[in-house]
């Protein structure tokens, strides 16, 4: 039995809007275990991104608990929460979110320097794996979408997280670049034992991951 990295217990999420309350999902229970890759699928608007944000500690659930390791995330002080996010998790967005005022190299190294896990050899290996060595001196704005996504992945991995959340990482890429990025994520999952949680619409991508979870009718189920 693998150790769980992040555990979601009886989580539900309700949004309050001007037209009333909206329950996105309820009683969701998931164990994200070490070295495992997960696909999270579901139709648009069912709350996949919200669930990913809850799992990564970016958003508070309406009810239920989130454990990172053995610690109840939302019982912790804001500073301790920030520390857990800094050391244990990393997240990749569809829109890459690179820091525009830092070069590619500075972007990659930034989080690892802040959480004091900076390791040159490790980072160089990631850079080689992601084939972005020639881009290190560039500014993010000069990169293509595929290149920016690879830099975002490199930045996330350089911080040596235990779990990597990816919110539709290939959503804005063409087929060729999507394949490259996905292969890299799977390779990383195997090579560095980093748990991987990927939101995707593509069943083809989901089939390549070890566990496929579907969010449907406000409930989560294994597929």
């Amino acid at each position: 039995m693998k150790d769980h990295i992040v555990e979601i217990k009886d989580v539900s999420k309700i949004f309050f809007t001007k037209s009333g309350s909206l329950e996105l999902f309820t009683d969701v229970n998931i164990n994200f275990c070490a070295s495992t890759s997960y696909a999270l699928i579901g139709e648009s608007g069912v709350g996949k991104s919200t669930l990913l944000h809850i799992a990564s500690g970016l958003e508070k659930p309406s009810t239920g608990e989130v454990f990172v390791g053995n610690q109840n995330f939302w019982d912790l002080k804001a500073s301790a929460q920030a520390l857990l996010r800094l050391n244990e998790t990393a997240i990749i967005f569809q829109q890459y979110n690179l820091i525009p005022c830092l070069s590619v190299k500075e972007n990659i190294e930034f989080q690892s320097r802040v959480n004091k896990k900076h390791n040159n050899e490790y980072i160089n290996a990631i850079i080689d794996d992601l084939q972005i060595a020639r881009l290190l001196g560039e500014w993010p704005e000069n990169l293509s979408g595929g290149e920016q996504q690879r830099v975002a992945i490199a930045r996330a991995l350089a911080a040596q997280p235990k779990i990597l959340f990816a919110d539709e990482p290939t959503g804005s890429l063409d087929e060729k670049n999507s394949k490259i990025v996905l292969d890299m994520l799977l390779n990383i999952n195997r090579k560095y034992n980093t748990s991987l949680v990927v939101i995707t619409h593509s069943l083809a991508i989901a089939s390549k991951l070890e566990v496929c979870l579907e969010l449907k009718s406000r409930k989560i189920s294994k597929k």
């Binding site: 970016l58 804001a78 996010r85 050391n87 820091i99 525009p100 005022c101 930034f110 802040v114 959480n115």
Partner: peptide, 16 residues
């Protein structure tokens, strides 16, 4: 610089 601050917060830099 909203994006920069957003990323800093996402990766776990304390608000303070």
């Amino acid at each position: 610089r909203r994006l920069t601050v957003k990323i800093l917060k996402t990766i776990g830099i304390e608000r303070t």
